[in-house]
Amino acid sequence: MSPDLVPLLGQAFGETVFMVLITLAVGGVCGLALGLGLYLTRPGNLLEHRGVFAVLNVAVNVVRPIPFIIFLVALGPVTRAVVGTTIGTGAFTFAMCVMASFVFARLVEQNLVSIDPGVIEAARAMGASPLRIVRTVVVPEALSPLILGYTFLFVGVLDMSAIAGYLGAGGLGDFAIVYGYRQYDWALTALVVVIIIVVVQLVQWLGNGLARRALRR
């Protein structure tokens, strides 16, 4: 790898970190809210509401299976309305946030469904309000799997960032293709792959550790 590529690699790394962190933050908050909404309004649960549940459920089912590269393009008009443009890191990050929210919503819901309904009933029996139950029972009781789900989301978001990068958002994916693949520089491509693997391993290790601590058994 020629020395003048080093700052470009650094810049690409920075762009990826930016996209991924923003997406994880926004997607994490929105996905948690959506997932809680799905869980709470599910028939038989705390805030049972067939209408709201059906709308959320359909929305998640419609958005989630769309391949991200198509979703990115299809979301164009919405992206333009919100961000003002359909190109550049900001526009792509917006699309990533939307997709990540829907993906994480399902992950959250699936992890919450496994909570023992008995502990929620106990909290109700002690006079706790639904909001308090969400804050003090639902989230803390499912914290460990939620952390693992969030770690899983990280890998998905990193994947999305590479596709977004290829379409013009920059970042490591774009760098690997432009300076590695297209220049027949397999060593450079491999270097980027190794960087990504190391980052994923570190995050997974961190996630596992936090999840274990949250389990407290």
Binding site: D116, G118, V119, E121, A122, G127, P140, E141, A214
Partner: peptide, 24 residues
């Protein structure tokens, strides 16, 4: 529902499966 909460709080209840919070 809001009026029932204080009523519930004034009645103790125990369960077959204990229903303790594992996180606490």
């Amino acid at each position: 529902e809001a009026q029932l909460r204080p009523v519930r709080a004034g009645i103790g209840m125990i369960f077959q499966q204990f229903n303790l919070l594992a996180s606490r």
